[in-house]
Structure formats: structure tokens, C-alpha cells
Design a protein around this nucleic acid. Structure first.
Length: 420
RNA sequence: GUGGCCGUAGCUCAGUCGGUAGAGCACAGGAUUGUGGCUCCUGAGGUCGCGGGUUCGAUCCCCGUCGGCCACCCCA
């Protein structure tokens, strides 16, 4: 029979990797908690319409990257490609928007793309969405919060903030027209992809990686010159707040996003330590989305943060805490016919020392092989129960990582010894 | 969807100018009776991704296919 494999682009998280993920998840959820954000968990599967309406009919995500199929009743459903749409839907549905909400989430997202470094078909995102606050102070807060996150993880030197404002929909439309006029006159100089984008999604030409296209864009109209008054003021205030908070940023007037719902503030935290997929965290303001989705008009800001990319970065930069390697503190070695005594001793220890991560050997084997496993486990102590110990209600403690002399003592005294 | 590189032991890789394969690490056992790490010895482990073609004979050459990686694209 042919070997069954995981579906392309959908990776297993193996035991060796899970400590890093647990660390990241714990760090982030604690951080969000410290800023007063509440966790929300929404379904992985949603009505297809949710995404085509929220993300945008003409986006690549909706056009060719969604996992869409019919369920048994014939309804079109989609594995979520991003987290904002579902969060907005849930907030409207459960009347959360009668007051401001600061929310965060974590979970798998699905996009049918060709896998490469930092890009999978099932990937995981942390996200933050804030509803009901229109001022730039909240934009600043989420950026300050992410800046703290980088510091906490030890990667703030490797990550830079790119900032832009897309303006309101009118000013964006005016800019798009100007850009199309400028580029249409130079159409033959554009690369193939950008020529295609000229009709479908001209703003996306701005972040083309093609060198010649970028050269052409140097003299193109600038998005920031087209900003409406309110957006411009919002942007100016945001910059002042970031300056005051000591958050560094670069203005990148060519920064646009691939999802249609963004307006005003947009940003990306980028790094060059991840290869081509350099964006770890990105988001912006989407003041029109809630109303567009059938809720009452509600301003909103948020971002998504790629978990695989973040973990990859921490591994690459070697900034994961040393302590993650050690998974157990003690390893119980049981030789001879002592199974019940060993299991009872292990339970006793788990009662007395809740912090102790104790792995009890099972499956027999020679003394020597059990000691080898004790060593490999990374434990600090080998706790030994042989027939002598079992007969006398004793246990032997051997220190695997220090020169301290091993000792045999009454089982009842062990907790006190390890505690000290 | 497009392109480049790559598929040999659990892992990292070598190798055969075409005669069915090896190293290091890891794993298992041993080096005097209940003591790991270092060292030494021994062992197990591979339909050389899969299918076809050329050939007396293919892991090696050719074609196809599947898979992986990286980049474009896209985006977190």
C-alpha cells in the first residue's frame, strides 16, 4: 500500500518543535492579556460569501487561493484564509459592538498557494482586532504592543516597521486613477504581472519586486499626496504618537495590502531573516468593513501575525530560551519486579511536588539501558527503585548534571530533598 | 499557475566512468554481578521516490510521474 502522506503544504508539528510553539503562544497570550485584550475563537469553516464580501472579490486570495467546497446540504463553505472576516462576523452576530472591543485570536488559516519558506497551505496566525475606536491612539497602541513583543522575544533589532496611509475610499480612488494614467502611458515598460494588475488591482503594482517597474514608479504620483484631510491628520497624529513612544518606523508610500478592506493606516513589520516572505506581522485600519458586513458603522484596526514565520525567525536567530530544551526534571528508573512500587512512588511524588516533571520508565530493560534513557531525557535526577529500595520503602537519587553524591533515602523524605 | 535545484539507511550525505551500495550521527547489545555521559567492540537498518524506456544487466543514462526545497506570484 502506498505510504500516506500529509497533504502538501500542511505540516505536522513534531514533538521537537512544540516547545517553541508553546513558548510563542504563551508569550503572546500573556502579552495580549497585559494590554486588556480578550481572546475570541471563531470557526475554521465559514460561509464562502463571508470571505468574498469581506476580503474582496477581485483579490488573489478569493480568486484562486481559497479552499472552497460544498457541504452535504449543498452550501458553499470555505476554510478561512484569514481571521478578520470571521471575527467581524462574530462581533456583529453576538452584538459585541455596542461598546469598544479589543480582541485577539490564534488559529489555523488556509490558502492554496505553492509552499515555500515561510509559506504553507495550512498556516497559523495570531490576530488582533479592535472595534469601536476611531482615533490614532489605538493604532499607536497596537503598534506599541507589537514593538514590546519583539523586545520580549529578543528580535527587535531584526524587525522594522513600515508605515503608510491609504486614505479614505475617495482619495484612494482618485490616486488609483492618477496612477493608472501615469502607468498606462508607460505600459510597455511594465513587467507582465504589473500589466495584468493595471486593470485588476493597480495599487498592487506599487509593491512589485521587479526592478524596472520600481524604477518607473520612482516618478509616479505619490499616494500620500492624495490623502484626504481627515486621513492626513490621522496619519500625522499617529506618527507623533509613535515618535513620543519611541517606536521607530519608516514611511513607505508604496506599502499597500492585498485585502480590499483596508483604509487609512496600514503597516507591516518586516525582516530580512526570513527569505522572500519577509512580513511577520501586518495590518491596518478597516473602518468600513463592519458596516459593509451588515453591522452598524464601526471603526476598526487590526493585524495578523504569522506564527510559522515568527517561530522560524526565533529559531534562525537562535533566541529561544535554553530552558525549552529540557522537558523533564526527573526520570524514574525501575529495575526488577518493582512495577507497582515504582508507579506508586511516581504518583506520590506528583502529589507532593506538583512542579516536578517526572517521567517514569516503562517497558523494562536493563539497568544500563534505563540509565541511558534517563540521561537522554535531559532530566536532572535519576530516581532509582530496585528490589532493595522497593523492599525497604526507599528510593535512590542520582544527580545526572552535577557531581553531588547519590543517596538512598526513605521515599517519604524525597520530596523534602528535591524541594530544597 | 510559472521557473530553478534536488530525491541513496531514522537524520546529514558519499558512491558506483552501468555489474543490485557505504560513512558519520542516531538506534540496539556488549566491555565482571544494580549506575548514564567519554572511549572501544558488535549489531540491526536501504524494493538507491515511483513507473516506463535503452541495455545481457540501471541506483547510475533517457522519458514520464510524484514528492521536497527555493524563487516568481501572493501574503502572515
Amino acid at each position: 500500500m502506498k505510504q500516506l502522506r500529509a497533504i502538501r503544504g500542511m505540516n505536522d508539528l513534531l514533538p521537537e518543535q512544540s516547545p517553541a510553539w508553546q513558548y510563542v503562544e504563551a508569550t503572546l497570550s500573556e502579552l495580549f492579556g497585559r494590554y486588556g485584550y480578550s481572546e475570541i475563537r471563531t470557526p475554521t469553516l465559514e460561509a464562502t460569501q463571508l470571505f468574498s464580501r469581506a476580503v474582496g472579490e477581485a483579490t488573489d486570495i478569493v480568486e484562486k487561493e481559497m479552499y472552497t467546497f460544498e457541504d452535504k446540504s449543498g452550501d458553499s463553505v470555505t476554510l478561512r484564509p484569514e481571521g478578520t472576516a470571521g471575527t467581524v462576523r462574530a462581533a456583529i452576530q453576538s452584538n459585541l459592538l455596542i461598546q469598544p472591543q479589543r480582541l485577539w485570536y490564534f488559529g489555523p488559516m488556509f490558502r492554496y498557494e505553492r509552499p515555500q519558506k515561510g509559506r504553507l497551505r495550512q498556516f497559523h496566525q495570531f490576530g488582533v482586532e479592535v472595534f469601536g475606536i476611531e482615533g490614532p491612539d489605538i493604532d499607536a497602541e497596537i503598534l506599541i504592543m507589537t514593538a514590546r513583543l519583539w523586545r520580549q522575544l529578543g528580535i527587535s533589532e531584526q524587525v522594522t516597521l513600515q508605515l503608510n496611509s491609504l486614505g479614505n475610499s475617495d482619495s484612494r480612488a482618485a490616486y488609483r486613477d492618477a496612477l493608472v494614467v501615469y502607468l498606462s502611458e508607460r505600459r510597455e515598460l511594465l513587467d507582465e504581472d504589473s500589466q495584468r494588475r493595471l486593470e485588476r488591482n493597480p495599487l498592487r503594482i506599487l509593491d512589485s519586486k521587479n526592478a524596472q517597474t520600481q524604477e518607473l514608479l520612482a516618478d509616479a504620483p505619490c499616494l500620500l499626496d492624495f490623502l484626504d484631510e481627515e486621513s492626513a491628520a490621522h496619519f500625522t497624529q499617529l506618527r507623533a504618537l509613535l515618535d513620543a513612544a519611541g517606536v521607530k518606523y519608516e514611511i513607505n508610500s508604496k506599502l499597500v495590502r492585498g485585502l480590499d478592506y483596508y483604509g487609512k493606516t496600514v503597516f507591516e513589520w518586516v525582516t530580512d531573516s526570513l527569505g522572500a516572505q519577509g512580513t511577520v506581522c501586518a495590518g491596518g485600519r478597516y473602518d468600513g468593513l463592519v458596516e459593509q458586513m451588515g453591522g452598524k458603522s464601526t471603526p476598526a484596526v487590526g493585524f495578523g501575525l504569522g506564527a510559522e514565520r515568527l517561530v522560524l525567525m526565533l529559531e534562525t536567530l537562535n533566541v529561544l530560551p535554553e530552558s525549552l530544551v529540557q522537558q523533564v526534571d526527573a526520570y524514574l528508573v525501575a529495575v526488577g519486579d518493582v512495577q507497582s512500587a515504582a508507579l506508586a512512588a511516581a504518583e506520590q511524588l506528583r502529589d507532593d511536588l506538583p512542579w516536578l516533571r517526572l517521567q517514569a520508565h516503562c517497558g523494562g530493560g536493563s539497568f544500563k539501558s534505563q540509565m541511558k534513557k534517563a540521561d537522554k531525557s535531559g532530566a536532572d535526577y535519576a530516581l532509582i527503585i530496585g528490589e532493595d529500595e522497593a523492599a525497604n520503602g526507599q528510593i535512590t537519587v542520582k544527580y545526572l548534571r552535577s557531581d553531588q553524591q547519590q543517596q538512598t533515602l526513605a521515599l517519604t523524605e524525597l520530596a523534602a530533598l528535591l524541594q530544597g
